[in-house]
Amino acid sequence: MKTLLEFVKAGFKQRIIYRSSTLWGLVASTLTLFLQIRLWQVLLSSAILQDDRTLTDMVAFLVINALLASLTRCDAAGTLASLIGDGSISCSLTRPISLKKQVVCEQIGVNLHFVLFTVLLPAAVAIVIYGIQLPDVSYGLLFAFSALLGAVILFEIQYILGMVAFFLTTVWFASFYVSGFMKLFGATAIPLWYYPDWLANVCYCLPFRYITYEPILIFLEDAPNPLQTIGIQLLWIGALLFLEQLVWRRAERKLVVQGG
């Protein structure tokens, strides 16, 4: 556990050095959040669509989305690819701690830094300005747990894609797939309730909406059955872990053959 914390710290510290990056990152994330809020203000004020969703709901969606997105940011694919590319994978594999845990913990450190210094402030400001209701304790806890599971799902997807690097040497394209699927099927850009029915149905069959969208519904106390959501999340994690094992077996064989 202590070693794991060291990796988290290492990830966090990596980012501390870049102070001006942090400052500009804060400016950028503030800009983005308030841009999105402005867009929805304009959209919701057009009276054509009578909607029981209020701006406050939408702002809550955007704020929680921004927080979760930054907490679950993950470039496991890129990390794995660069480890494999320059051969330091063998060094990482000889450490007495699994490669996956190293990658996860470093990423957690980096993300904590990002949330703390670049997203928390604009998010807090938006929560105060728009008077967003925080959920009660039980929903709050369910939300936190569900968000954690969401992060695990995203990480698993990224990690599996990252292992493609064992077969193709480059995976710069992996992030495009993840971002595309997250945006379209994960409803990170606009909430699923605006989707046409057929597309919403497609999303139900895929894991992406369980990353941030479903946790947000729990936060809004809008989820009909939070426990069911968490159950489905666990099922997806199981399925992805299984897939990961399959890919890892093949990757390992490849690693042995090529000698790293």
């Binding site: 379209l184 606009i190 597309l199």
Partner: peptide, 20 residues
């Protein structure tokens, strides 16, 4: 896929409100 998703979400958002 990535940029196509952006196009799709923009289209969905604006068309569900009619216009922006």
């Amino acid at each position: 896929i990535s940029y196509g998703a952006t196009f799709c979400t923009i289209f969905i958002a604006v068309s569900s409100f009619g216009s922006l």
